Simulated assay, not measured.
Amino acid sequence: MKKLVFIFLTLISTNLLAQRPQTEQGKGSLAFWENLTKLCGKSFEGEMINASENDQFYGKKLVMHVRTCEDGKITIPFHVGDDHSRTWVLTMEEGDVIKLKHDHRHEDGTEDRVTQYGGTSSNTGMSKVQFFPADQETTSLIPYAATNIWWITLDDTTFSYNLRRINNDSSINVKFDLTKEVDTPPTPWGWED
C-alpha cells in the first residue's frame, strides 16, 4: 500500500511540475515581453532614483512611451525634458532572449556618433526582470562601457530602467509609475509616425 501511495504522489507531483507556467520553466522572457506589449501606445512619467544635482536628468520631466510593438520588436522612446533623442529598442532574439539597444539621434534625425550600444540577455531571465550585459559592439564603440549591465524591471505598477558599471559606483535608475498614464510626447527625433 505504501508503494502505491508513493507512486500516486510521484505521478501527481510530476504532473503538477509539467503544468507550471512557462515563466517557471525558463521562459521568463516571453512573459516579460507579453506584459510589456500590454503597455503599447501608452506613456508614463518617471523619476530618477538617488539623482544628484550633477546628473544630466536632474530636474527634468522624464517620460517613456511604449511607441511600437511589432512582431519581435518594441520601441520605447525615453524623453528627457525637451530632448527627444533617446529610444530603447528591444528585440526578441533566437532562443527567446531579448536584446536591448540604445538608439540616439540628433534633432535633425541623424544618428549620434554613440548609438546602437547595449547587450543581449544571457538567458531567458524572469517575467519581471531582464538583464543585458554589454555586448562586443558596445565594448568596441565605448571601451569604458565594457562592464555595463543594464536591466529592466516590470510589474503591474512599475517599469524601471537601470544601468550599473561594475568597475565603479556610477548607476542610473529611472522608475516609471504605470498606474498613471500621461500625454504622449512628440515623435522622437529620427523616427516617423
Rank of each mutant, 00 (worst) to 15 (best):
residue 77 P to W: 01
residue 126 M to H: 13
residue 108 D to N: 01
residue 13 S to L: 12
residue 29 S to Y: 01
residue 67 R to A: 12
residue 11 L to Q: 11
residue 102 H to N: 10
residue 37 T to S: 06
residue 99 K to V: 04
residue 44 F to M: 06
residue 48 M to I: 14
residue 77 P to K: 01
residue 159 F to V: 03
residue 46 G to R: 02
residue 74 I to A: 03
residue 154 L to F: 10
residue 97 V to D: 06
residue 119 G to H: 03
residue 27 K to P: 00
residue 23 T to S: 13
residue 157 T to H: 11
residue 177 D to P: 01
residue 153 T to W: 00
residue 166 I to V: 12
residue 170 S to G: 12
residue 44 F to I: 06
residue 13 S to V: 14
residue 91 T to Y: 01
residue 186 P to Y: 03
residue 159 F to Q: 03
residue 192 E to Q: 04
residue 124 T to E: 07
residue 4 L to N: 11
residue 138 T to I: 02
residue 192 E to V: 04
residue 69 C to Q: 08
residue 188 P to Q: 03
residue 51 A to N: 07
residue 165 R to D: 15
residue 73 K to G: 05
residue 84 H to R: 06
residue 18 A to L: 09
residue 53 E to H: 09
residue 84 H to I: 08
residue 184 T to Y: 02
residue 146 A to D: 11
residue 163 L to T: 11
residue 121 S to H: 01
residue 94 E to T: 11
residue 2 K to T: 07
residue 48 M to Q: 14
residue 103 D to A: 02
residue 27 K to I: 00
residue 175 K to Y: 02
residue 69 C to W: 09
residue 182 V to H: 06
residue 184 T to C: 04
residue 150 W to T: 08
residue 163 L to G: 05
residue 28 G to C: 06
residue 174 V to N: 05
residue 193 D to Y: 15
residue 164 R to Q: 15
residue 109 G to K: 01
residue 28 G to A: 07
residue 97 V to Q: 02
residue 81 G to K: 04
residue 122 S to L: 11
residue 45 E to S: 12
residue 161 Y to V: 09
residue 158 T to L: 07
residue 89 V to I: 06
residue 2 K to R: 09
residue 160 S to Q: 08
residue 111 E to T: 09
residue 1 M to A: 12
residue 95 G to Y: 02
residue 173 N to W: 09
residue 29 S to Q: 02
residue 23 T to E: 15
residue 33 W to Q: 00
residue 148 N to Y: 13
residue 141 L to R: 08
residue 59 G to T: 08
residue 60 K to R: 15
residue 75 T to W: 00
residue 3 K to W: 13
residue 70 E to H: 09
residue 191 W to V: 02
residue 14 T to G: 14
residue 64 M to T: 13
residue 156 D to S: 15
residue 157 T to F: 12
residue 159 F to R: 00
residue 85 S to M: 04
residue 171 S to H: 14
residue 85 S to H: 06
residue 186 P to H: 04
residue 129 V to E: 05
residue 63 V to F: 05
residue 25 Q to K: 14
residue 87 T to H: 01
residue 21 P to H: 07
residue 132 F to E: 02
residue 83 D to N: 13
residue 17 L to G: 12
residue 141 L to W: 06
residue 163 L to Y: 13
residue 148 N to L: 05
residue 151 W to Q: 03
residue 116 Q to H: 08
residue 177 D to S: 07
residue 106 H to R: 05
residue 150 W to Q: 14
residue 45 E to I: 07
residue 132 F to P: 00
residue 79 H to C: 08
residue 90 L to T: 03
residue 150 W to K: 14
residue 22 Q to L: 15
residue 74 I to W: 00
residue 91 T to R: 01
residue 27 K to T: 03
residue 76 I to K: 06
residue 2 K to Y: 13
residue 182 V to W: 08
residue 68 T to G: 05
residue 2 K to V: 10
residue 155 D to Y: 13
residue 108 D to Q: 00
residue 98 I to V: 05
residue 157 T to P: 11
residue 67 R to D: 14
residue 23 T to H: 10
residue 164 R to I: 15
residue 101 K to I: 13
residue 191 W to C: 00
residue 158 T to A: 08
residue 163 L to K: 13
residue 136 Q to D: 12
residue 104 H to R: 10
residue 192 E to D: 13
residue 189 W to D: 01
residue 126 M to W: 15
residue 168 N to H: 11
residue 45 E to F: 10
residue 20 R to S: 09
residue 131 F to I: 03
residue 97 V to S: 04
